[in-house]
Design a protein around this nucleic acid. Structure first.
Lengths: 246, 246
DNA sequence: CGCTTCTTTGACGAGCCTCAAACTGAGTGG
DNA sequence: CCACTCAGTTTGAGGCTCGTCAAAGAAGCG
């Protein structure tokens, strides 16, 4: 059985999107319909597929299931992942050209956000406008967190901090609870997100396991001692609190 | 003599601000007056002074002279600098709470940007609005560059990349030329910006000197071989080209 | 099964950090 | 004008963190 990670009993595909938006602002009935209207224009993307080119402007979309990321590649093949796009997250909203490429990390399903984007632009969906704006602020804040991780934290701290961030974000989207959440990432992806080598990510994860702080198997992460983990890396989740009261 | 770095003969204090804005959009005469109107409301700040608190919202200001930074501190004293604020740069525009603290790195002079901010909000200064918007995009892009430096570049590459970015930004503000520019930063500040230790920054600078790539003394940096330096770290300046044609 | 991808482990080395101390230069006060 | 101080730079020694190379398990998948 799949328990409560991922496909809830009775969980509809676009629920993460609505949950996410509602965590950022109070959304009206009409606005909900607006979001739902895009739900039949879905697309599937294979892992590795590039959804948005750096510098290009993509069509606005929401992630329904699967994970993607914003990233940049160096000419010699090195990769830096800036942020993860989880179910419920949107991208290519607004009208600015993309500053980073968006790439599918797993099998990915997205839905159209064009109607929402248009309504927001016309001023016809003020609450969603607020939510998208708050989401933007939150993304900026998370990027600063990322910079601190990369520049000033040890591998042990980086992994801990990153897992705590994911736990919270997934809980908001309605996936996972306060301890368990899906983690469908290879260690290579973690390495590129955290500025480490694959081997060192592996060893750091072992260390976290041996410390009894986490459990990790077959795509599911369990934070055995969230408070202890938070203390390790001084995690307070401040960057995720920009929206409404949690 | 001060040569052409810093206090130009006949260079007025707010020139960096106007130069910067003009590099981002065509500013009208009336808009220039609007900017100038804030020039008498200046403030001086000592090195280390905090101009904006993290999470607080400061009054909108432009840097006239001296350097500041956006930063975050960890409870144990570690510091990560996210970006530098150079003469001509603005901060606390728009209405969002600040995601990072702003701190003076040198003796600093700022001027009021409140009138500009208000005019932009009322739609009375469309070109400046565009410039500020472009500046925001550029800041975001530079933050991504920073993340790549911190996560995926060697110390040698980080320092090279950072110096090239500074050269270009200062040239735009009208300070320094294609090779020479003021660099009033201690190695400790460089370390906190680049995610390195002071000692290693020192050694990396020596290495750059011995390679004949740069010269560095008494607050002035000289890029002896800008092209070679750019090749070292694959610098292309893409993130600084968001504005008008250079 | 047999392939591929991913994880895990070991051995080794390099990059970077810490500690410590000497050196330099710019004030500052006698 | 010369100590004296203090911040910043430079250098050395040593060690830990993290990366690279390599190869052996595991695990998913046709």
């Amino acid at each position: 059985m799949m328990s409560r990670l991922g496909a809830h009993l009775g969980m509809r595909p676009i629920d993460p999107v609505l949950r996410r938006l509602r965590s950022l602002a109070s959304i009206s009935e009409g606005e909900v319909d607006l979001v739902r209207a895009g739900a039949d224009r879905r697309e599937r993307h294979a892992p590795g597929e590039q959804l948005v080119l750096e510098g290009g402007d993509g069509r606005p979309r929401f992630v329904i299931s699967g994970w993607a990321c914003r990233q940049r590649l160096l000419p010699d093949g090195r990769r830096q992942i800036f942020s993860l796009l989880l179910p419920g997250d949107g991208f290519s909203f607004g009208s600015r050209p993309a500053l980073s490429a968006v790439v599918a990390l797993t099998a990915l399903e997205t839905m159209d956000g064009g109607l929402v984007n248009e309504a927001v632009r016309r001023g016809a969906a003020p609450n969603i406008a607020g939510a998208l704006s708050a989401a933007e602020v939150m993304e900026d804040a998370l990027l600063l967190d990322q910079a601190v991780r990369l520049g000033r934290m040890t591998a042990f701290e980086r992994v801990s901090h990153f897992l705590l961030e994911l736990q919270r974000r997934l809980e908001i989207a309605g996936l996972g609870d306060q301890q368990r959440f899906p983690l469908p990432l290879t260690q290579e992806i973690l390495a590129d997100a955290l500025g480490l080598s694959i081997v060192h990510v592996n060893r750091t994860l072992q260390q976290l396991r041996r410390s009894g702080l986490i459990e990790l198997r077959s795509g599911v992460a369990i934070l055995l001692q969230p408070e202890a983990l938070a203390k390790v890396c001084d995690y307070n989740g401040a960057s995720l609190r920009s929206g409404k009261a949690a």
